[in-house]
Design a protein around this nucleic acid. Sequence first.
DNA 1: ACCGAAATCTATAACGTTATAGTTTTTCCA
DNA 2: TGGAAAAACTATAACGTTATAGATTTCGGT
Lengths: 341, 341
Amino acid sequence: MTESPLPTIEPGRPTLKTIAAESGLAVATVSRALKDASDIGEETKRRVREIAQRLGYRPNRAALRLRTGKTNVIALVFSTEADVMNHASSLIYSAAEALRGTAYHVVIMPFFADEDPMAPIRYLVETESADGVILNQTMPDDPRVRYLADHNFPFATHGRTETGIDHPYFDYDNEAFARIAVQELARRGRRHILLVAPPVSQSYAAHMTTGFLQGCADHGLFPEILTTAHSDSGAVRIHAAVAERMGLPNRPDGLVVGSTTAAMAAITGAESLGLTIGTDFDLAAKEALNFLFRFRREIIVLHEDVGKAGDFLARALMAAIEDNTLAPRQFLDRPTIADLV
Amino acid sequence: MTESPLPTIEPGRPTLKTIAAESGLAVATVSRALKDASDIGEETKRRVREIAQRLGYRPNRAALRLRTGKTNVIALVFSTEADVMNHASSLIYSAAEALRGTAYHVVIMPFFADEDPMAPIRYLVETESADGVILNQTMPDDPRVRYLADHNFPFATHGRTETGIDHPYFDYDNEAFARIAVQELARRGRRHILLVAPPVSQSYAAHMTTGFLQGCADHGLFPEILTTAHSDSGAVRIHAAVAERMGLPNRPDGLVVGSTTAAMAAITGAESLGLTIGTDFDLAAKEALNFLFRFRREIIVLHEDVGKAGDFLARALMAAIEDNTLAPRQFLDRPTIADLV
DNA sequence: ACCGAAATCTATAACGTTATAGTTTTTCCA
DNA sequence: TGGAAAAACTATAACGTTATAGATTTCGGT
């Protein structure tokens, strides 16, 4: 066997070729050795691994991706709407943390109010820029979910859909939330409850409303749903809408609200009429942050752990990517009375 | 010239090869035509562009990256510390928005409390996984900045450093913030001001402290710096530290605070002693969100626009990546009295 | 009508990896 | 001792792109 002219120590990042030169083996052998193929001798594998280790070999992602089609990328397609952002950032970080130690990178593809929600999804599928995608802000009949399912593109959603498609998701049980919220308001003697509901376009609006109505029925309370604003309307709008309603006759004495901003705005709205929380009315809210109990001690708060969602979705998506036959994994996070802060 | 046996319509994503087959040109010609090279005929370019358009050709990122080394990726390396997250999410979205319509993808690489802040940076540089990186939480003598500069890796930071290295950054002028905050407290007749300063490890701690001391000197106020907590200590700690200090003799009647959570916690801390904001004390804070004015109407708020930072940093980084000789671009965002909400 | 220059176009190799189809070496049994 | 089977390794091509050097065509001028 003739030695190659000079085992020139190559500069730059080590590649399989570097290891091949160093070990006297063929590139293909090195490749197979590193992936522990059965047709490579144990001793060889050991040597190759040792050299790779010593050289600090790291596979080239671009080459891998070109050759295999696997991107090792998970895309998060998130809306940029204001209040959702706090959710989004927890979700991003917890998903990233779940992916730590794996080969996956996390890319963020926001979609903007002025663009088609389908655009980033189509882009991902058409350019095969990711192995899977996590979505939020699911709608009951979400065209993104249909499209992804149709194209057999792995995905997981934060929130369920009514599409009948069986896919991985994580959802907070907003029905249970509303029921518990109403129950707690009933316990405090409130009789007429106003719900600041999510926008009807969102999947969870129906869940929350159902729970709300049922809770009211269970406890013999009078339910009312605010029609002049929803929980994503923005603080100014909510403040005004609540102030308006609470100024009319037959005033509600309890409020149920689904987000931090909405809770603050609803309270300042009521307060602008001279009403006092804990006395004239009570309010129950859910939040992902931990602000509200400082805002007004009297708020009834249920904590929603968005970090749990990110972690779960990342793992479920990985499973979906790596083994299509595995049953889809779904999780419904059920709040209980014990979650009252 | 013999025709290739069958101009088989290839399935899957169109590539240069597809266009070449379709047009009867060579792959290399198609490549050059699409990048408007000077040695390709105008008519040919037109035809090629038309076909590319019609076929929905999208360059393969992996191949491009493998061939050219350009990743078209910008990495955001962010800490996951709680209060910074709100900053981080605005920054992420505004950076992503600035990158809209470009070839850049945004990847998020959080680094965790339990790991070396250098780890993700080294990873990026060693694996050449991105064309540039945006950092936050800069420290006066930031080893990440030194390392990146040493390795000639494009980067931009949110916050300045004291390294003497000339690099792109965006910084909020915390010195000006503190001066203005103190000035406003002075205007309200406050005499003894307590600063809840950022952790000294962070670059902006020195800026804020300088502005604070100078502002107090300018208006003949008595400055004091809280030593038992800093503005990232977490709400519980800050609440307790402020309550403790405000319970001692020689009580401050003004507070300056650099974050939303810290402001809320400081206020609840003072309130736990029966003190009232606007009467017994005043507090000035800066925040990126828009919560505080609802929390207590009396808070003096300076708004920090983190979105501006993300937008600027993304553009500055692109410039740095695409033209190394371009003077580094830096921005110091100076709050003025007019920014008081 | 010819030549050199300019204008267009193309073949080839390479980026780093892996699947496929070998080839070589070793082992073991009759 | 021969030879088939098993074990261990390798050459080649391909993924989609672009830089390089070269090939072909067109054109202008005399």
